[in-house]
Amino acid sequence: MFRNDDGTRMTNNTIDQAVYGELEEATGADFVAELVATFLDEAPGMIADLHDAATQQDDDRLRRAAHSIKSNANVFGAAALAEIARRIELDGLDADSLKILDTEYARTSAALKAKLDG
């Protein structure tokens, strides 16, 4: 579904330009940069929380962590990350959902960092 070999294309697929551009237009590019930095700060904690909840088989905490990731991913137009988080929130885990989420987060954070840098 996603290609990992082409940096530019990855960015385009990972972040919905229309959503991201609208956010910049509505709140200002400087503010969005600050917001992205906050997300990159906070997200590893949320993902660690999700893994922890999975290990502990704490369904409620798992659902809440997935909910937070979904909510933030939607802010930046990170549709694929939002979708896998949403599936975890609604249906719980299946065999490889954590792995998919980790991969999607890696793509999303790389794409967001690329936006911050240039």
Binding site: T27, F31, E34, L35, S68, S71, V75
Partner: peptide, 17 residues
């Protein structure tokens, strides 16, 4: 809101209004 990104974004939107 318990999520920092959400708090920042909503505050910004509200202040812009």
């Amino acid at each position: 809101d318990d999520n920092k990104v959400n708090r920042l974004l909503l505050s910004r939107n509200v202040e812009l209004l």
